[in-house]
């Protein structure tokens, strides 16, 4: 009939997390900037091309002062990509966006030994030495185990990793995981695996009756699924841009 129906190319919306350096300014700002200059002087380009988030939680400054602080930082080649812990009254449309739900990561190493400045300026947040490439710390991927049935209208959201459901996922329920989804029961609702951009994620279930499945933003509704898989134990994965499904032995 129309192009819309013959060429379903929906826009893919994905979440992704990145490491950023979190700076915690202190009052008075002028003094803090002096200490920052001292730190930067010891390693030229420490802040260059590094995403920086300003954590101003509990900091008593108004919008104008914050705007000046951001300008001061940008004149020092510190580019602020977002502001954490800000009240709405402190932000404006011309300022970096508010960021929430930050999680601590491995510490950034400050340029040189100087206990005083290191302690006060660089928030213990993330990664490696100045010029070294970013390295993922080796840790086990987190997983979430839900040992009950997920009922209609309930939603399990776990962008950090795998989700295992010991029970069923009811019609009208949804499970969103950054990693794979395992359902030891019937999957009747929606399952979205690899939601943060993981094309390797898979979906496994004991009984496939899903309303919708998605991996890495590519989705398939019940109507498009192979009817012979219905009611069977199955696994779903992504090959290129195609969702594949097979009966589990």
């Amino acid at each position: 009939m129309t192009d819309v129906l013959t060429q379903p190319r929906p826009i893919r919306l994905k979440g992704r997390s990145f490491l950023a350096l979190a700076l915690t300014p202190e009052l008075p700002v002028a003094d803090w900037l002096v200490r920052l200059d001292d730190l930067a002087a010891r390693s030229a380009g420490f802040f260059l091309r590094r995403p920086v988030v300003l954590d101003i939680d509990g900091l008593d400054i108004d919008r104008q002062e914050l705007r000046e602080l951001v300008e001061q930082l940008s004149s020092r080649n510190v580019r602020v990509m977002g502001i954490e812990g800000a009240r709405t009254s402190q932000l404006g449309p011309d300022m970096p966006p508010a960021m929430t739900d930050g999680r601590p990561a491995a510490d950034f190493e400050a340029p040189a030994e100087s206990q005083k400045t290191e302690k006060e300026t660089v928030d213990p947040v993330e990664i490696p030495a100045p010029s070294a490439p970013l390295q993922q710390p080796v840790t086990a991927a987190p997983s979430l185990i839900v040992s009950r049935t997920v009922r209609s209208g309930q939603s399990i959201f776990f962008p950090e990793g795998d989700v295992t459901i010991v029970g069923s996922v009811g019609s009208g329920a949804e499970v969103v995981a950054g990693g794979s989804i395992h359902v030891y029961g019937a999957l009747r609702g929606r399952a979205m695996a690899g939601s943060t951009g993981n094309a390797e994620a898979r979906i496994f279930c004991r009984k496939l009756e899903a309303e919708l499945i998605a991996i890495d933003g590519f989705y398939k509704t019940a109507e498009d699924m192979e009817p012979e898989l219905r009611g069977k134990a199955g696994q779903i994965w992504l090959e290129g841009e195609t969702i594949k499904a097979a009966i589990l032995g």
Binding site: R148, V150, R151, S152, G153, Q154, G170, S171, G172, A173
Partner: peptide
Amino acid sequence: RDSDRIIGLLDS
């Protein structure tokens, strides 16, 4: 399906 929803609410 509506009952399933209600059971979820009963449990929360």
